[in-house]
Computed example of a mutant assay.
Amino acid sequence: MLRPAFLAPVVDLLFPPRCPLCGATLAMHGGLCAACWANLEIRGAGLRAVPAPAGNNAGA
């Protein structure tokens, strides 16, 4: 939901930005704190990219 820029300080006062995982305060809405981001496990992060086989016409 978009909100007008002039309402942002009021919204931040009523609903301070917090990490959704641990509740730590944040500088702005829409993210994780540094500790939670560091502990986040991203599936497939260690896999290398495999190129598509030659002649693959998928999406054409």
Rank of each mutant, 00 (worst) to 15 (best):
residue 34 A to N: 02
residue 12 D to G: 08
residue 21 L to P: 13
residue 58 A to P: 02
residue 2 L to I: 08
residue 33 C to F: 03
residue 51 P to Q: 03
residue 13 L to N: 10
residue 60 A to V: 15
residue 4 P to M: 08
residue 50 V to Y: 05
residue 49 A to S: 02
residue 11 V to M: 03
residue 50 V to G: 04
residue 35 A to F: 04
residue 20 P to F: 13
residue 11 V to P: 03
residue 10 V to Y: 08
residue 55 G to Q: 04
residue 19 C to N: 00
residue 21 L to K: 08
residue 50 V to N: 05
residue 37 W to L: 06
residue 11 V to T: 01
residue 17 P to Y: 11
residue 10 V to N: 00
residue 31 G to L: 03
residue 23 G to S: 04
residue 7 L to V: 11
residue 24 A to W: 05
residue 36 C to S: 14
residue 31 G to T: 12
residue 27 A to F: 09
residue 39 N to R: 13
residue 50 V to P: 00
residue 26 L to R: 14
residue 47 L to K: 14
residue 52 A to F: 03
residue 57 N to D: 11
residue 55 G to E: 14
residue 57 N to M: 13
residue 20 P to H: 08
residue 6 F to Y: 07
residue 53 P to M: 00
residue 48 R to L: 08
residue 28 M to D: 07
residue 42 I to Y: 02
residue 41 E to F: 01
residue 58 A to M: 10
residue 4 P to F: 03
residue 42 I to Q: 05
residue 22 C to K: 03
residue 17 P to D: 06
residue 18 R to D: 01
residue 33 C to D: 05
residue 27 A to Y: 11
residue 30 G to T: 15
residue 38 A to E: 07
residue 26 L to Q: 06
residue 56 N to E: 12
residue 30 G to V: 14
residue 9 P to I: 08
residue 32 L to C: 08
residue 22 C to W: 05
residue 17 P to S: 13
residue 39 N to L: 11
residue 60 A to N: 11
residue 6 F to I: 01
residue 50 V to F: 10
residue 59 G to M: 06
residue 29 H to F: 13
residue 39 N to H: 15
residue 14 L to A: 09
residue 9 P to M: 00
residue 57 N to Y: 12
residue 6 F to L: 05
residue 28 M to N: 15
